[in-house]
Amino acid sequence: MSLHVLASGTLTTVQDLGRPGLAHLGVPRAGALDPPAAALANRLVGNDPDAAVLEVTLGGLVVTTDVGAWVAVTGAVCPIEVDGAPRGQARPEWLAPGSRLRLGTTSSGVRSYLAVGGGIAVEPVLGSRATDTLAWVGPPRVEPGTRLPVGPLVRRPAPHDTPRPPRAGALRVHPGPRADWFVPRALTTLCGSTYEVGSASNRIGLRLEGPALERVRDGELPSEGLVLGAVQVPPDGQPVVLLADHPPTGGYPVLAVVEEADLWQCAQLRPGETVRFTPA
């Protein structure tokens, strides 16, 4: 069976758990930016945790199916309709053959996840179906007209999943490797201030605007490896939290590292919203 995409909004990509382990070849890890939301969507339709889902940015996805399928939408809140009739978020819904599923404009959050029973079964690239938007390793972005194959159902959906969604809060940070490139109070400034999410934020990084993190050295480091959640600080002092599609190496000093369990929040913060940091 397959899903036929009629509209894909701002950006829709196929995502799974990503392809870690290839940073030494220059390949970003990719993968769902809000892993708990993607995992919930998979659980609801009976998929394994590594099944591929669609990551929909700010809504606007319309799909039909040639054979009936279980679907579930999680993550950013958006109106969900099947053939014009409202359906629920975060629960399995039956999509009959020929029916049209529509995700409206998101009202809060940024990224919604659509899981289909059996998983999106596009051909894996280097062991993963995730699309990396930095170097475009993986399947191409989902466009109107795309036909997405769906795998065989693994098990029945779990209509009674009672997830406890993670709670939003300050992002917990650990010290980073290049604290000596900053004035001694830089980490205190980061944790004592409110930062606003910049409009250039994407799957590569959450760009923040607020009190500058003052450096004591100019210039760049010789490129070095970067981790997920690294808080990188370019010369203008405005921090960038590196997300799933971050370059594997870079030359801006890293002041801190955000706790991995808190990074899902970075996937759902809208430009203009604020974020705070706290020592882990």
Binding site: A23, H24, P222, S223, E224, G225, L226, P248
Partner: peptide
């Protein structure tokens, strides 16, 4: 991950 670079190796 074992990531060599210009003057470092990252173990992640």
């Amino acid at each position: 991950e074992v990531v060599p670079a210009a003057r470092t190796v990252l173990f992640d």
